[in-house]
């Protein structure tokens, strides 16, 4: 093999490798682009929920009504939770009664149904990997955990009234995975 043939072979091999590397890099780039696009679509879907959550609609009015009720009744609720005369074993029942009384007085059934149904939908969207879990967590989880812990007597009440023990199960299992049975009272 003379020098000329050697160079020709080197050029051929180099060209082949160059093409292979280019195709591989192009493929990897395409995969990265696809994954980024998937993430962007998930974030867009989640942001649609965020817009709905903050838009001036039924959901916002429901949240505002719940917040106003809580503002007006927070001392009344805390008086049960901090009462030293109530035994720890009785606290759940007393708290249940007080929350149900407030829900009835301030007509919070409708607003709570709106809010819980919304949280159920966003959890479903996360479970199906249609929404971005991290974005949803940042926007909804703090609010949702507070609502679920505060108004769990409403969930128990609905389950009992409708004879529907699985009502809002997705929300309860998601936010209170290790909680004790809460509807025993």
């Amino acid at each position: 093999m003379d020098r000329q043939e050697y160079k020709l072979q080197v050029a051929e091999v180099t060209g082949t490798w160059l093409a292979a590397i280019t195709v591989t890099i192009g493929g990897l780039f395409g995969v990265f682009q696809y994954l980024e696009h998937e993430d962007a679509v998930r974030i867009d879907r989640t942001m649609a929920f965020v817009e709905r959550y903050h838009s001036d609609g039924l959901l916002m009015r429901s949240r505002l009504q719940i917040t106003n009720s809580m503002t007006a009744n927070v001392e009344y609720i805390n008086s049960v939770l901090t009462d030293p005369n109530i035994k720890p074993s009785d606290i759940a029942k007393k708290y249940n009664d007080r929350i149900l009384e407030i829900i009835s007085k301030d007509a919070l059934d409708g607003p709570l149904e709106q809010v819980f149904t919304f949280y159920e939908q966003i959890i479903l969207c996360r479970d199906l990997e249609l929404c971005d879990a991290m974005v949803a967590e940042q926007f909804f989880d703090a609010d949702a955990l507070g609502y679920v812990r505060t108004y769990y007597p409403y969930v128990c009440s609905i389950r009992a009234k409708w004879d529907y023990p699985e009502k809002y199960e997705r929300v309860i299992d998601f936010y209170l995975p290790k909680a004790e049975p809460m509807c025993t009272n």
């Binding site: 809580m70 927070v74 609720i77 805390n78 939770l81 901090t82 720890p88 606290i91 759940a92 708290y95 703090a142 609010d143 955990l145 507070g146 609502y147 679920v148 812990r149 505060t150 769990y152 209170l176 995975p177 290790k178 909680a179 004790e180 049975p181 809460m182 025993t184």
Partner: peptide, 21 residues
């Protein structure tokens, strides 16, 4: 924007069944 923006009865009394998480 923080995690503690809503009322949480578990901060007042941890004996509620929903506070065992």
């Amino acid at each position: 924007a923080g995690p503690d923006r809503s009322y949480d009865p578990c901060r007042i009394n941890k004996n509620l069944p929903v506070c065992k998480t």
